[in-house]
């Protein structure tokens, strides 16, 4: 199954053991290679950014995301995570630039595999870029093969 960032943001996050509402998806943390979701930021009652690792996602459903336990929720400490939580790195809206140094537009959306958390493709305003062509996602751009 696949989903898209813009569709998944706001989706309810529920503790699979206790059935408690934990919060809702705020953002996705993607690795520097731009290929895989490593964490999800969950917006709940806590004021600090709250993260859950992709490994603790039990089921990424169309309506609800089940996580193993609320105890898996943790603060954002690692640098890549804080970069994304603070908005320094964000797939949506970032420019797409080729390894030849040419801009191709900006990212409108990201399609991902709900089973593995792997990015399938980024949807640019000038076309789709398959994950195999993605080289990195950083503070300036998503760099892709030309």
């Amino acid at each position: 199954m696949s989903s898209a960032f813009t569709k998944a943001v706001g989706r309810k996050v529920v503790d699979s053991a206790t059935a408690d509402d934990v919060g809702e998806i705020k953002t996705f943390v993607v690795d520097q290679a731009g290929r895989r979701i490593t964490r999800i930021q969950v917006a709940g009652r806590n004021r600090n950014p709250q993260m859950v690792d992709w490994a603790d996602v039990k089921s990424f459903g169309d309506d609800v995301v089940l996580i193993t336990s609320q105890s898996a929720i943790h603060d954002a400490t690692e640098e890549r995570t804080t970069d994304i939580v603070k908005g320094a790195v964000d797939y949506i809206g970032t420019r797409i630039i080729t390894v030849d140094g040419e801009e191709l537009g900006a990212v409108d959306d990201v399609h991902f595999d709900t089973g593995t958390g792997e990015v399938i493709a980024i949807m640019g305003n000038n076309g789709r870029v398959e994950a195999a062509r993605i080289r990195s996602l950083g503070t300036y751009a998503a760099v892709v093969e030309s």
């Binding site: 520097q32 731009g34 790195v89 630039i97 390894v99 140094g101 080289r135 990195s136 996602l137 950083g138 503070t139 300036y140 751009a141 998503a142 760099v143």
Partner: peptide
Amino acid sequence: GLPVVTINGGDD
């Protein structure tokens, strides 16, 4: 004036 961008990092 052009930015210098890293292919492996996506950073300017």
